[in-house]
Amino acid sequence: MNIVVCGKVIPASSVTIEIDPATKRMARKGVTHELDPAAASAVEEGLRLTEKHGGTVTLVTMGISDATIGIRNALAMGATSAVHVLDDAVAGSDTLGTAKVLAAAIKKLPFDLVICATESSDSYSGIVPGQVAHLLGIPPVTFAREITLDGNRITIKRQSEGGYDVVEAALPVVVTTTSGINEPRYPQLKGIMAAKKKEIKIYTAAELGLSADQVGEAGAKEKVLTVGRPPKRQAGKVVVDEGEGGKQIADFLAELKII
């Protein structure tokens, strides 16, 4: 079983992400990076499946050189190897550009199953996995809260508005995982040491057979026109509880005629 996990390395959650008004992109350079927690969950799911059914887990990512720290983290968790698309030409890609890059990188690998998080934790468009599936010519099997493999069949519990659907397909597919499908493991010292020897294969867009007008800013169909801040809510009243906080809220609700 060859599993490919697509995941993103993003500015660490402790960092407040800013948008650069000049490029209208997220300011990714010069801030601490980490493996997206959503991607860590996808890696974890891949590891659990290979622990049960055998096989390899390869992380595929696209990102700046700072992404290495997150790639190493996935390798330390237990991923077998990684592919890093590292190229200034892919900066500014929109969702479809990103999907083209990931699909081209995945095509270089043997794969039976592709696992992605439902969405990344920084830009959360949530449509890249479905685009990748289409570009690979395999079905998308999305929003999995539980994954079971039986030979060539994959069965998932798919999150739905009112509960879940039991959904089945034949491999290969692209499956997406919801947050909370598992608790990703923390890398142990042994894993961290082993990760240093694991291969990170680096590609440029051209090496993946992609022309400059397909990816990056040049290939993006979506153009950000303006970057702004939403209208501020009128600041309300804040009081410090000195034993009457609950009563003060009740007074406020009474003013609104709620009680």
Binding site: R233, K237, V238, V239, D241, G245, G246, I249, A250
Partner: peptide, 26 residues
């Protein structure tokens, strides 16, 4: 708090029970 019309800086385990009692009373 920046998004709130009314905010109480306090312990939720004290403020909420008091709010519940107060609503019941009223």
């Amino acid at each position: 708090f920046q998004f709130s019309d009314f905010g109480v800086v306090g312990d939720v385990f004290k403020v909420v029970p008091q709010l519940i009692e107060e609503i019941k009373k009223r």
